[in-house]
Every structure is written in C-alpha cells, then in structure tokens.
Amino acid sequence: MELEDVSKAFGSTHALQHASMELHAGEVHCLLGDNGAGKSTLIKVMSGVYVPSSGRLLVDGEPVTLAGPRQAQDLGIATVHQDVGMIPLMSVARNFYLGREPNKGWGPFRRFDAARARATALDEVHAMGITRVTDANQLVGTLSGGERQALGIARAIHFGAKVLILDEPTSALGVKEASVVLKQIDSARSRGLAVVLITHNASHALSIGDRFTVLIQGQVADQWARGERTRDEVLDLMAGGESVEDLFEKLD
C-alpha cells in the first residue's frame, strides 16, 4: 500500500499536506510527530474514514478510492484506533465479531452463532498472550487498556488484515502492558502484515520500527529506514525539528 502526495484540509486547517508514504509487507512503519502533526488524519485517510482533498491511495499498485471504513476493511486494511472502538457494555465475543457476525440457522431463525464466536474469540485472544480473559461473555468494559488493544489486534489479524494500522496503542499503557502490545506487533509483522504504528514513545519506535516517517505540521519532515539515523537524531526530529539538547538548555 502506498500514499501518493496526499493532502487533507478541514476548512482552513491543513491537517495534511503532500504526504507520501510506502508500506511493505512484514515491516513496521512508525509514524512519528508532535500532537496535532496530522498523524491521526493520515491514518484516517488510509482507513477510509476521510477522503483526501487531493492525492492518491495505491493498493498493490492500483489506485483506489475508499468509500468508507468498510471498504478499507474489505481490502484488508484494518485499524485499531486510539480508543480501540470497542463497545464497553458488550461481551468480548460480540465485540470481536462486531460488524462481521457469524450466523447460523435458517430464515427467521438465522441467528448469531454465539458458541462459535465465544470459542474463536477466546482462542484468538489467548494466542495474543492475554490469558486473563477466560470467559468470552465478559464485558469489554472490564478489560484493561492493553487487553483491549490486544483484542483489537487479534480481531484485525483474524479477519485477514494485510495492513494493520495502530494509533498510539501504547500511550495509555503501563510498561508491562506496552511490552505485551509490542510483542503482538512483532508477531503481526512476522506473519507478514504491513504495520503502521503511531507512537510518541521513541524507545518503542526504535525498538520495533523498520521504517520511519516524521510529520511536522502536516508535512513529511523526514523518512528513513532502520539504521539510517542515530537515536539522538530521531529524538530531535520527534521534538519537532529542534535539538533535544537545545530544549534542555532552554529549560536551564
């Protein structure tokens, strides 16, 4: 998948300007940048939530216009948003299959295949290393943030995602939970998915990223592959182009 010269404006706000980006199977592409830099906007363009004001989206080299999130999903582009998009007062099993429920039965007795949904959802969540969930009837609202992320990632992989977009999956998590999510991202990558990871955390990005894009005020400020920048250069870029040492000097 590829973004070519994509711009998105909300009225007079240019949230994204002439951004281009390539995703490759089996790679984690980290999207970095300050708050308001346009990261969420960029992934919403990729996931069909927003139609770009200009520019193109290419999937397998073919230009596509995404009419909505549903079409993006059908093309194998799955997004786990910042809030994961779970329904808190609904069970793990029903959340897992939301919008793609397995049905059984005939005619008016066609119904949600609850037993199958429970079994599969539990298997997939356990495969993600979340063993605390033992009852698929448990309400998602009772899961921790990391468990919800895991559920979201498990759901995306289960439904055959080729591109997995994660919007700040680790930002609200403790150290231990974040490392669990990073492991899941790693396992998604080794299954051959193209992962887009938005994060504010340089250590997370550097530990897992294969390719990096930094956005500053809606524009691509820099793009590189793993190993092409030093840790300090990355930190400077993430701080909005200013040297971190300068920032510390200002503080002193």
């Binding site: 999130p69 948003h81 998009g85 939301l98």
Partner: peptide, 12 residues
C-alpha cells in the same frame, strides 16, 4: 448506543 463511533468504524 454503546459507542457510535466504534460501531461505525466496525462497519455497523
């Protein structure tokens, strides 16, 4: 009713 935004994103 539980999370309209989430429901829309899930394709409901």
């Amino acid at each position: 009713g539980g999370n309209l935004d989430g429901a829309i994103k899930a394709g409901v």
